[in-house]
């Protein structure tokens, strides 16, 4: 999990498979935040959740949101973009980890009254998610191709 308000910085997270990469950006304060969550629910390992909350969507995403609000961001200003939730590590898709990560994420945005501005999810390819703090521009790389979200 990372937050930045330095115009010369970029937040990047690599190797998003079934994991979920979430980028929040406040265009008013030019503050950006990013979290890379691996699993949907923290209840499977409460100790781990305390130690590394960002691992789990249900605690990692609200924590990122809280941290941004503490920096003076307002929920209604946050632009939400998300990438990942693929089926790469689970070809039979028995565990539906990607879909579950996405479902828990959507529950959080809905409960907070936030829309998802753009997303690049599903499929079977790994992704890299990048957020430019100066502009709020978000780019997803996958299989050598770049896509702006």
């Amino acid at each position: 999990m990372a937050i930045s308000d330095s115009a010369d910085e970029m937040l990047i997270t690599y190797s998003l498979g079934s994991c979920l990469g979430v980028a929040f950006y406040d265009p008013v304060l030019r503050v950006g935040g990013m979290v890379h969550c691996m699993l949907p629910l923290s209840q499977i390992d409460n100790d781990k959740a305390r130690e590394k909350p960002a691992m789990f969507v249900d605690v990692g995403v609200p924590k990122l949101m809280d941290e941004m609000l503490k920096r003076g961001c307002r929920k209604k200003d946050l632009i939400t973009r998300v990438a990942g939730a693929a089926r790469v590590m689970d070809s039979t898709n028995l565990f539906r980890i990607g879909e579950r990560n996405h479902a828990v994420f959507r529950k959080i945005t809905w409960k907070n009254g936030m829309f998802i501005q753009a997303e690049d999810i599903g499929g079977d390819q790994a992704r890299t998610l990048q957020l430019e703090i100066a502009t709020g521009r978000v780019v997803v790389w996958s299989q050598g191709r770049e896509r702006e979200l």
């Binding site: 539906r96 879909e99 579950r100 996405h102 479902a103 809905w110």
Partner: peptide
């Protein structure tokens, strides 16, 4: 049902 629970009610089955 699992798909609808996830997609509509945000519940994991």
């Amino acid at each position: 049902t699992i798909e609808v629970l996830e997609g509509y009610a945000f519940m994991l089955g």
